[in-house]
């Protein structure tokens, strides 16, 4: 559905993209993660046709972006990070306007707008001016306005920033529904749990390059990261710790706790508990720290996602 090859973009002396390539299949939910300034927005801006690449090729739904930008635009929907609506117009009028730009026939647009307003739980307030809406409600309309022309590909740039839990859950439901219906979604977010929850595949971008891509499991494997079993004891003597070290190489002691690094948590956890029981150690607490995007990201980039 989307093919990006050796994409480069320079702004004067700054090279924002240094040759990124990735493929997104039809119906796939693709997450694009990266710290600020990594090149996410530039990538999304190029894919959504408002920025011309310096080099490289992009095709969306079979249309070459350079040769046929108008057709590309018709197939995509963009949910920008900022809430881009006309506050003095009602939600319904906003939808009619934004949908109208994509050439949706008037009657169909009206029906579709009403359906979407119902989907986002805003039908009852459809005639209220957007300026009277809460931040979460505006976010919902912001997303809704990108769906009126039934895009094949949806770009969502941080769609849940700064909203209330109710709106967030509603947006999640809609996003999941769209995904199930077969829409291809490209999603950027700072929230790891969102990426982990929705994304079939993730591309991690840093300093203008894709440094890793694949499913969560594939990323884990490629990073060779292990999960951590943290066992805390009432008292941990040096003698006993030395015994454990001799039997278990990949671990680290932090005061009365031991961090065991494991590739197979289930079997290793049982072994640890049995061994501790045999040595007479009183376990206070056990915590399993799974490998997640945050740790993968940290491992790959050396930065927190919000850096």
């Amino acid at each position: 559905m989307i093919s990006v090859s050796n994409l480069k973009k320079s702004y004067d002396s700054i090279q924002a993209l240094k040759g990124i390539s990735f493929q997104i299949e039809k119906g796939e939910f693709f997450g694009l993660l990266g710290p600020n300034g990594a090149g996410k927005t530039t990538t999304i801006s190029i894919l959504s046709t408002i920025v011309e690449p310096s080099e490289g090729t992009v095709s969306i739904a079979g249309f070459d972006l350079k040769k046929n930008p108008a057709e590309c635009k018709k197939t995509i929907g963009v949910v920008p990070q900022e809430i881009a609506l006309y506050n003095e117009l009602s939600a319904y009028d906003n939808l009619l306007f934004w949908g109208g730009l994509y050439g949706v026939p008037s009657a169909e647009l009206k029906t579709r707008s009403e359906e979407i307003l119902k989907l986002f739980g805003l039908y009852d307030r459809r005639n209220d001016k957007v300026k009277t809406y809460s931040g979460g409600m505006k976010r919902r309309i912001n997303i809704a306005s990108a769906l009126l022309h039934k895009p094949v590909v949806l770009f969502m740039d941080e769609p849940t920033v700064g909203i209330d839990p109710q709106s967030r859950n509603l947006i999640f439901e809609v996003v999941e529904k769209l995904h199930k219906e077969g829409m291809t979604i490209v999603y950027t977010t700072h929230y790891m749990e969102e990426a982990e929850r929705f994304c079939d595949r993730i591309g991690i971008i840093d300093d203008g390059r894709i440094i890793a891509q694949g499913s969560l499991e594939e990323l884990k494997k490629s990073c060779q990261m292990k999960e951590t079993i943290v066992v805390s004891f009432v008292l941990l003597s040096d003698t006993i710790f030395d015994q454990i070290v001799s039997e278990w190489k990949d671990l680290k002691r932090i005061e009365n706790s031991i961090h065991f690094y494991s590739s197979n948590v289930k079997s290793d956890l049982a072994k640890i508990i049995i061994r501790c029981s045999e040595t007479g150690l009183d376990i206070v607490h056990i915590d399993i720290q799974k490998v997640n995007l945050e740790t993968i990201f940290l491992s790959l980039t050396g930065k927190q996602l919000r850096d």
Binding site: S48, T49, I50, A70, K73, K74, I76, V78, P80, E82, I83, A84, L85, Y86, W98, L101, Y102, G103, S145
Partner: peptide
């Protein structure tokens, strides 16, 4: 300033 110009540019206009 409000981002609607950018959003207009996303459209086929």
């Amino acid at each position: 300033q409000e981002g609607t110009l950018k959003k207009l540019l996303y459209s086929p206009l």
